[in-house]
Amino acid sequence: MTEDSSADAMMAAAGLTGEFAVGTKPGLTAALASLALESGLSDEGKGRAVAQFQDNLGRLAAIASDRAAHPEIADVKIDRPVFILGLPRCGTSILHALIGADPDMRTPLQWEVAAPSPPPEAATFDSDPRADGFDAYVAANFSGKWADVLKAHPIGARVPQECGMILETAFQGINPAMLFSLPGYYDWYRDADTTFGYQVHKMWLQHLSWKNPRKRWVLKVQEHAYHLPELMSVYPDAVLVQPHRDPVTVMASISRLIEVIRSVSFEEIDRAALGQELLHLWHDGQVRSMAFRKANPDVKVHDLRFKDIVADPITAVHGVYAHANMAFSAQTERAVSAWWSDNPADKHGQHKYELSDYGLTREQVESVYADYIATYRDYL
């Protein structure tokens, strides 16, 4: 069976039809073709990849089915959403959670992105059994080799979810490459027109907002940097925020995190090859982002330092609110302060890593990221 026919069979099995199948098929086909060429994956790893692809299709099919049953979901307005950009490990998750602590703000939570149907409702949002089910899944699966993931990245039912878990349902996100090292798929994704992915992204926000709205959405994932033209075509009133951090520290940290994530799917991981892969992969996104910003000076981006987020989160969040023209109330300040107090950096243990573990040197990183460093030196 060819990857093309395999994609058709998988979408049919998930119940994905019409425009959703047409839009999803190119990325799914690219992912399946790349998976067939990946020799480093264990049999278990290949099974995990296929299961992940099936889950993505199932979640999108659920969104499509609910939308067909309730056409009014398409009328939900998404007003001036805030998108947090930036390299991995530079404070985007912290900033996302800090703002998400504000009761007036809406972030996608991990449980509702994992199990979106039926659409969540405000009256039962805090007691929805799907949340406990997600936490039970995390407790059962994030142990052994995967235990270190929790040290590096927060995972839990009521933790804000990245947009990557939404974009991957359209097979127009970077997650398959991160989880399973699929270079062919990454090359496809990097150069694809991902407008369909952002249209699906907006459908997700409408779906999650329908019966549980807030004043504004705040969203994040590093891969937005690759496709800002498509993002802005779907969200022309989007507000952009970008934290920055020394890329030398970023590369050491993200290499360790991806090594841990992949450890359950690969018999062996070549650390030096991983270091080189991620060194250039994340730089690709910044090249795209810097080009977009240079070509679109009218699109204002709020730049800030990772160091300032962790040194004074209240002031950092206040700056984002000012940029987004949102009221920073006493309630907001209390919520942000409480989240910071309840979530110390080492809550799940320390995440240890060294750049040299991945065959990288400071000089190598600074050479590849010379353009980024020169552009954002004041924010590093």
Rank of each mutant, 00 (worst) to 15 (best):
T194I: 10
H201R: 04
L240E: 04
K215E: 14
M203W: 01
Q222I: 05
L240I: 06
E223R: 06
Y198E: 10
V234I: 12
F196G: 13
T194K: 13
P213A: 09
F266K: 05
F180D: 02
M203R: 09
Y235F: 12
D187N: 15
M232N: 07
Y186G: 09
S253R: 06
S233M: 05
L182H: 11
H227I: 11
R190K: 15
N212R: 10
M251S: 03
D246Y: 03
Y235N: 12
E223K: 04
E230P: 10
D246V: 08
V250C: 02
V239G: 02
S253F: 05
P243H: 00
S255T: 03
R256L: 04
F180L: 02
L205G: 06
L208T: 11
I254R: 12
D193M: 09
R216D: 04
D187R: 15
V264L: 07
V250D: 00
D193S: 10
A192L: 09
H207K: 07
K202N: 13
E259Q: 12
L208C: 02
H224A: 06
H244Y: 06
V241W: 00
V241I: 11
V250F: 02
M203L: 12
I254N: 08
R190E: 15
M232G: 05
L205D: 03
R216Q: 10
R190A: 15
R216V: 01
H201W: 07
K215S: 11
S265R: 05
S265H: 04
R216K: 05
K211S: 12
Y226I: 13
E230I: 08
L205A: 03
Y189N: 13
V241T: 01
H244R: 08
P213C: 07
I261K: 11
W217Q: 05
M178D: 14
V239M: 01
I261H: 08
V248F: 02
K215I: 07
P243Q: 00
V234K: 08
I261C: 09
R216L: 02
P236T: 14
A238M: 04
Y185F: 11
R256P: 01
M203G: 04
A238N: 10
L231S: 11
V248H: 02
D237L: 01
M178C: 11
Q199P: 12
N212S: 09
D191Q: 14
P183A: 12
K211P: 02
H207M: 09
S255I: 00
W204Q: 08
S181R: 12
